[in-house]
């Protein structure tokens, strides 16, 4: 998602970027679409209740153990 879309998303839900669900930068799905740390990705899920649902995740670095 581009920056404008992200700003819109955060405004509609009245949340900050950090409050989005996260996904690690080395997640296989993120690597497949080429997302970088700090990007927000839009996920279209097959939902059992709504048929199709959109979700968002913030790409972040995997913390070192």
């Amino acid at each position: 998602m581009d920056e404008e879309e992200v700003a819109d998303l955060l405004a509609t839900y009245h949340i900050s970027l950090e409050q989005l669900p996260k996904v690690y930068h080395d997640d296989p799905a993120v690597r497949a679409i080429g997302g970088d740390v700090g990007n927000v990705i839009r996920i279209t899920r097959d939902s059992r209740t709504a048929g199709r649902a959109e979700a968002y995740r913030l790409v972040m670095k995997r913390p070192k153990k």
């Binding site: 996904v23 690690y24 997640d27 296989p28 799905a29 993120v30 996920i43 899920r45 059992r48 995740r57």
Partner: peptide
């Protein structure tokens, strides 16, 4: 691990 966190979520459900 293999298919990503979204696949994991689906698997839990």
């Amino acid at each position: 691990d293999v298919l990503g966190i979204e696949a994991g979520r689906n698997a839990i459900i």
